[in-house]
Design a binder for these strands. Structure first.
Lengths: 101, 101
DNA sequence: ACTGGGCATATCCGATATGATATATATTCA
DNA sequence: TGAATATATATCATATCGGATATGCCCAGT
């Protein structure tokens, strides 16, 4: 959710917590969800840092822009392959990937 | 491959290198493959450290032993969910998971 | 040798991740 | 404001992941 939308909803009386609060998730569930989101955000951050558009990155990975968008949005589960191939092609070492966890 | 089998094959004249040597993989390909294998091995290591059989761990995850075997063998790709749920249920924090990368 | 426990393999199936195209929305800038 | 670029969403096809059952192999203990 973007901050603009969030502010509108808050103004309308909504409040916000994390997924654990909201859904009554177990700590493990919340934790792996956080991991997934963290890594997805890292893709976006590194892509922008490299000055690449989603289309540019898609080309490097021989795929298409919408697939990159999905990855960054973490709208669904992701395979290790897809995620790490992406992060590695952005020039991140496994060690640097680990650093964001 | 277990070491016993490997020794037999070596005795029969086979030699061994890593996947990058053998398949002519790109550094990225080799790297994410290593990551995948590292994490798979970590599942096995942590499971044994906890004194659990594959069946025990499967029960904790409400699944079956063969699925754990597949995960540890890394015979196929794995989703972030499956992998991290498993590692987290073994008591590993994201930080500790990162430490093995 | 027999048995039981632990792990691996084969196979089927339902669920879903990935990839593609088309299109919508958002952002930037002249 | 309009055009160009960037990102998001919708939808479909295909590939494959995760779960299940059945079964085989190996080893340890009896």
């Amino acid at each position: 959710m973007d901050s603009k939308k969030r502010k509108r909803l808050e103004a309308a009386g909504w409040t916000f917590g994390n997924a654990e609060d909201f859904l009554g998730m177990s700590p493990e569930e919340a934790s792996y969800l956080e991991v997934k989101l963290t890594l997805a955000r890292e893709v976006e951050a590194q892509r922008k840092k490299a000055g690449l558009s989603q289309s540019d990155l898609a080309a490097k990975l021989k795929t298409r822009q919408p697939n990159i968008a999905r990855l960054e949005k973490a709208q669904q589960n992701v395979t290790i392959d897809a995620l790490f191939k992406t992060l590695l092609v952005l020039g991140l070492s496994p060690r640097k990937i680990a650093a964001v966890l």
